[in-house]
């Protein structure tokens, strides 16, 4: 048992060594944070250092050239084009995900079926991306080759869109759920139909959240390589005189594919190409996040929050 002591200033004063465990723990967790910081920094610095020669000597040439076997000429124009097209196809499918979220959150009754669907969607978000490549290979490459032209950027875009779909449904669903009930009741109380309530109150209030989800989706779509690999993105290709639509259905590549292909070449001299392509990809992802932050801020300001 503790005995009661008379209190003097000394008994209340912190003593050295009193909290040794606390100090050790603090050092441990701050070094964990430090290590995490180091990882972020090291990835950034390493990539830029490796890419330095290319970025300084032939930046525009690198951005504007297709991949080739010649180190001095090889670039990422085809990759940029492929990535932008894939992102565009993914964006075109966003309404499907947002619509599904609106249905699940606003219309569907709370039955076992809708709950099963919610759980399934949540779990599909955790399925490894390469599995979506298999889907793309079977359905979009082989099944719908009349539409997609086989191993094409359309097939890749659709497969990535399916991959991103659960992310969109989940984040949009969360944003919709976060819309306060009084807001809905207020609108219903004034004689608005369900659709009017959704369109004029629920969707605008959920817009920042939905936007975040779509940006996450685009960033994910830009960075994914595994499904493209299975669908058959190639290292480089020649287009000849194909017009735009023929190119959509022809051979394709994407930025992450460029990076993977350059990185896997045994000669270390190609590493700079992979790093430079990584810098381009990181900047693209960063820009998209930035746009989202700005747009979000504008919307939130308009909503007066």
């Amino acid at each position: 048992m503790h005995e009661r002591q008379t209190v003097s200033l000394d008994t209340l004063r912190a003593r050295r060594g009193d909290d040794a465990a606390g100090h050790v723990f603090f050092v441990l967790i701050t070094s964990a944070v430090g290590l995490a910081f180091f990882m972020v920094g090291a990835v950034g610095v390493d990539v830029v250092v490796e890419a330095w020669d290319i970025l300084t000597e032939r930046l525009w040439d690198f951005l504007g050239s297709p991949s080739s076997a010649d180190e001095a000429k090889s670039g990422v124009s085809q990759g940029i084009r492929g990535s932008i097209l894939i992102a565009a196809i993914v964006i075109l499918t966003f309404p499907v995900g947002i619509g599904a979220a609106v249905y699940l959150e606003e219309y569907a009754d709370d039955t076992w079926l809708s709950r099963l669907i919610q759980v399934t969607v949540r779990n599909l978000a955790g399925v490894p991306s390469i599995v979506y490549g298999l889907l793309g290979l079977a359905v979009f490459v082989k099944g719908l080759d009349g539409l997609t032209g086989g191993r094409s950027v359309i097939a890749a875009g659709l497969a990535v869109a399916v991959l991103v779909l659960p992310v969109i449904i989940i984040t949009a669903g969360e944003a919709l759920r976060a819309v306060p009930t009084p807001l809905r009741e207020g609108a219903y109380g004034l004689g608005a139909t369900q659709w009017e309530v959704i369109r004029t109150q629920v969707l605008p209030a959920a817009l920042p959240g939905i936007l975040t989800g779509t940006v996450l989706g685009i960033a994910r779509a830009l960075g994914e390589a595994a499904p493209l690999l299975v669908i058959g993105a190639v290292g480089f290709y020649t287009t000849g005189n194909q017009d735009f639509f023929e190119q959509l259905r022809g051979a394709f590549t994407a930025l992450p594919m460029n990076i993977a292909n350059y990185a896997r070449l045994p000669a270390e001299t190609w590493r700079g190409h992979a790093a430079a392509a990584s810098v381009v990809l990181l900047i693209l992802v960063f820009l998209i996040n930035l746009v989202a932050i700005v747009v979000r801020a504008r919307i939130s300001k308009r909503l007066g929050r």
Binding site: A36, M39, V40, A42, V43, D46, V47, E50, A219, L222, G223, E224, A225, A226, P256, I259, A260, A263, R271, A274, A275, S278, L281, L282, V285, N289
Partner: peptide, 17 residues
Amino acid sequence: TLASIPSVVLGLFAISF
């Protein structure tokens, strides 16, 4: 930020760093 780095970039980081 770590979460938003595409995994190909980390693959490159693994062999180059």
